[in-house]
């Protein structure tokens, strides 16, 4: 689905990505783990277009997409969520979701003034979809609430909701489970599985919750110091001494 070749990204003297290469197979739920500072989020920033890599290539469906702007990548079918929720605080929860679908006729100002009927129809359809997503994420009651007033966990769910509104084929989720309570967590896991199975969405998920990764992800990619340390199934990874070394700082498992 997406192939990363030898990505390098430096910030001043810090080399966040140091020749990182791997592939996310189409239709997979790929886990991306690694100790803090391994470069996982930087990798997402580069893949989603927020940052330009200093070196290396990114191919999406065989097409070179290196250095494209985020909105262009979104149109190609890549969406990302943020580790720290990036909600639109002074807009309602519903608006946060209705913003997302691409190619809305109402985003053209002339159409807004001249063709309000068509836009009203389109809005109703988008609101319908947003309502479904809100229901799935148990945020329905908060549809009219300003997103800035949601709890931390609810904001994380809204991040996933934004991705779900996109219709993208590849979701890059940055710690979707952090701060979400166990009940909602189960719902979140189930939602990811269902989107994967039924709508063929490919996932690449950064997560620190190893149980979640074990339950959900295959393959799992381990990053450390800007490089891929190991990849494979969770069982294989768990037994890999290098991984244990990097993650736990050595010692017996």
């Amino acid at each position: 689905m997406i192939a990363l070749q030898n990505l390098v990204k430096r910030f001043g003297g810090v080399t966040a990505l140091d020749g990182c290469s791997f592939e996310v197979p189409a239709g997979s739920i790929t886990g991306l783990i690694g100790p803090n500072g391994a470069g996982k989020t930087t990798l997402f920033n580069v893949v989603s277009g927020a940052l330009r890599p200093d070196r290396g290539r990114i191919r999406f469906d065989g097409r070179d997409v290196t250095g494209l702007k985020p909105h262009r990548l979104f149109r190609l079918g890549i969406v990302r969520s943020f580790q720290i929720p990036h909600m639109l605080a002074r807009m309602t929860t519903l608006e946060n979701l209705m913003l997302v679908p691409g190619g809305q006729a109402g985003e053209n100002l002339l159409a807004v003034w001249l063709n309000s009927r068509r836009i009203a129809r389109e809005e109703a359809a988008i609101a319908g979809r947003a309502g479904e997503v809100l229901e799935l994420l148990a945020l329905r009651e908060l549809a009219g609430e300003l997103a800035g007033n949601l709890s931390g966990g609810q904001k994380k769910l809204l991040e996933l909701g934004r991705a779900m509104m996109s219709g993208a084929r590849l979701f890059l989720l940055d710690e979707p489970g952090a701060g979400v309570n166990p009940t909602l967590m189960a719902r979140l896991t189930e939602t990811i599985r269902r989107l994967n199975r039924e709508e063929g969405v490919t996932f690449c998920i950064i997560e620190h919750d190893m149980d979640l990764v074990a339950r959900l992800c295959d393959p799992v990619i381990v990053m450390a110091e800007g490089k891929v340390l190991a990849q494979g199934s969770m069982e294989a990874i768990r037994g890999n001494p290098e991984v244990i070394e990097a993650y736990l700082g050595g010692g017996e498992p």
């Binding site: 927020a50 985020p70 909105h71 943020f82 909600m87 605080a89 002074r90 807009m91 913003l99 996109s166």
Partner: peptide
């Protein structure tokens, strides 16, 4: 308004 609130989010939602 989304651009005003958080440009990064607006861009990540596919908006130029």
């Amino acid at each position: 308004r989304a651009v005003r609130e958080n440009e990064e989010t607006a861009a990540a939602s596919g908006k130029n």
